[in-house]
Design a protein around this nucleic acid. Structure first.
Length: 272
DNA sequence: AAACGCGCCTGCGGGC
DNA sequence: TGCCCGCAGGCGCGTT
């Protein structure tokens, strides 16, 4: 999916449509990862979005009627803001704003989430967020936090960074990228990492994610920004999708391996 | 507890 | 040309 930088870009662009009445809402297909709840349309209709928050890869919409919408874009979800009425294949949710803007949620694989709650507290107390850890860009995600959280784990650091119960927002692209800059082998067990290793991981997590946000995120097959633009971060990948190419820092070839079923890229010469 | 594998879906590209 | 296979930004559940 969209990982943290892509979701942050969605948030920024959708936030331009706050404080505008939502005249109508239509759902073409309720069967996302879990079905869209039956009161979703009624909870939103005639209300306005006051504020959009992001926690990890989740978007939290606070509405003027106190209701709260939670959305997650799964692997292939995206938002499209448009003035044209056309409905494309996989446009599952359509918001009709009073200023004639139409916002569509499109998600071919339907791994996304869209649920409404009576208020923000109810949303944050729900099962969705029960085990979601602090956000990777939150000041509370620091070296002491991560060291305490993972020093006893025997799992490899790469799969651990993908665990949203440890830190939220990092996905499969950025896990490889972060560990490349931190010069750590993705297969290394967490309990073998030094405090300095973990300090580097935290530092480069912030750096890589913030840099990608600035560049509009990464655009692979499915992802596009709500205004139709594509991000540029994929041009800055150090290792992701670059197997058999040369490492930027040395002449060694970038390796691709599978960890916990997910493609993982690293330079075996730089990352120990 | 913690670590792994599988399934949920659709679309695309490569190999035959 | 067309079919089949593997793979894709994620995550929850079941099993060991």
């Amino acid at each position: 999916m969209p990982e943290l930088p892509e979701v942050e870009n969605m948030k920024m662009l959708l936030s331009k449509h706050c404080n505008i009445k939502i005249n109508d809402i239509k759902i073409k297909n309720r069967s996302l990862r879990s079905p869209i709840n039956s009161s979703f349309e009624d909870d939103i209709k005639s209300s306005e979005i006051l504020e959009i928050k992001r926690l990890g890869k989740y978007l939290i919409f606070l509405l003027s009627n106190k209701k709260c919408i939670v959305m997650h874009a799964g692997m292939s979800g995206k938002f499209i803001a448009t003035l044209t009425q056309d409905i494309a294949k996989h446009d599952h949710i359509i918001f009709y704003l009073a200023n004639n803007v139409i916002i569509k949620y499109n998600d071919p694989r339907r791994f996304g989430i869209a649920l409404s709650f009576n208020n923000e507290t109810e949303a944050l107390d729900s099962k969705l967020f029960k085990n979601i850890a602090t956000d990777a860009l939150d000041i509370k995600f620091n070296t002491d936090y991560l060291f305490q959280k993972i020093k006893h784990l025997k799992s490899p650091i790469k799969t651990t960074l993908l665990n949203q119960n440890i830190v939220s927002g990092i996905g499969n692209i950025y896990a490889s990228e972060i560990l490349y800059y931190a010069k750590i082998d993705p297969q290394k067990s967490c309990n073998l990492l030094t405090f300095n290793n973990i300090s580097d991981i935290v530092k480069f997590t912030k750096e890589v994610l913030l840099n990608s946000i600035k560049l509009g995120g990464s655009t692979l097959k499915d992802y596009a920004l709500p205004n139709g633009d594509t991000g540029y971060f994929q041009n800055n990948f150090a290792v992701y999708n670059k197997n058999d190419q040369k490492c930027n820092n040395c002449n060694h070839t970038i390796n691709k391996i599978i960890m916990a079923g997910r493609a993982t890229y690293f330079c075996p010469n730089e990352q120990k």
